Simulated scan of single mutants.
Amino acid sequence: MRRLLVTLLVLAAVAAAIGLYLIRPDPLPDDALAGLVGDAARGERMFWAAGCSSCHAAAEAKDDAKLVLTGGQRFPSPFGTFVAPNISNDPDHGIGGWSDLDLANAMLRGVSPHGTHYYPVFPYVSYAGAELQDVVDLRAFLATLPADPTPSASHEVGFPFSIRLGLGGWKLLFGGDGSPVVTGDLTEEETRGRYLAEVLGHCGECHTPRNALGAMERGRWLAGGPVPAGKGSFPNITPAKLDWSEADIVEYLTSGFTPDYDSAGGHMALVVQNTAKLPQEDRAAIAAYLKKVPPAE
């Protein structure tokens, strides 16, 4: 009996060790960015495509204040309320002390410079498909923005979701590997649109329904779903519901006006402020991509 007990304890310890290994933070290799040099001018385009200011600027920020990434916006969900952190150039309370690799690990792997998991409210599941050069360029642009000393507020997340180590298990089940959702024979423009919409623009994070554990249901890509805060819903933007022409979509991403003379509201108004700063060909690429998304009711 004693031998059996010792054997079971050993097996349990081995299983625990394997489990901890599997759910550990998994950063990029130290040499992942070797030879890459950031271009701040190109990084500005990445900044608007990725929508950084929509979440990380102060809630009521306008004009140049949208470039002060002080954080503080609150995002309620069934798992708790998440608060956008300060990602300004402040070395103590922002990301002024981050390296290019730190940003790449955060965006592509959901791992902090301290080696802990980020919550997937930060859309690293989508960003996992980002080109490393784009991340380096984005870091170069972020370094040109103002520093703000406002400390980041803590998330308001209760047990068991407050145990970040458990996020490693979530990542094993649902973490992004960078593979595209819409596949097939795409034109160069449609492929560019897929990258902008699926990866940098992370459209699926709002417009795709989620399962009970908060993971996107990729089989119902962009089919819409309830707002995590519990009020309202995100619209279905697949061809099953979105019957706008490509020109209509481009106009909406430029001015926020719909073909019915309505206008973008809520957080989507902030998204349009970002897409309006992209080159016309990028908005056209997104429109072309949306026409290739499989219809989903």
Rank of each mutant, 00 (worst) to 15 (best):
L5M: 07
V271D: 01
P123S: 10
R164Q: 00
T208Y: 12
P27C: 13
E189K: 12
V135Y: 10
A296V: 04
D64H: 03
G129T: 12
E205L: 02
F257M: 08
F161K: 00
V227E: 11
P160K: 08
V14I: 14
A104I: 07
Y195L: 07
D92M: 10
A106D: 00
V68E: 14
F159D: 04
P123K: 11
L28I: 12
L36T: 00
V37Q: 08
G214A: 09
A59H: 03
P209V: 04
N274Y: 02
H267S: 11
Q280N: 07
Y195K: 04
S233A: 15
A61H: 09
G43D: 06
L5H: 02
F174P: 00
T150Q: 11
G193V: 02
R3A: 15
D262G: 15
G168W: 02
G201P: 08
E44L: 13
D177Q: 11
A229T: 03
K241M: 06
L196N: 04
E44F: 10
V14S: 02
P239F: 11
G19E: 10
P259K: 05
Y127P: 01
R210K: 15
I237V: 15
S152T: 14
L270F: 05
P235I: 10
P29E: 13
S53A: 15
G19F: 15
V227M: 11
A32W: 05
A58W: 10
A269I: 03
G175S: 06
P85H: 14
P120E: 07
H93L: 05
P228N: 02
W48V: 11
F122M: 15
G51T: 01
Q280I: 08
T70V: 15
T275L: 10
L28C: 09
Q133K: 13
E281P: 00
D64V: 05
L290F: 11
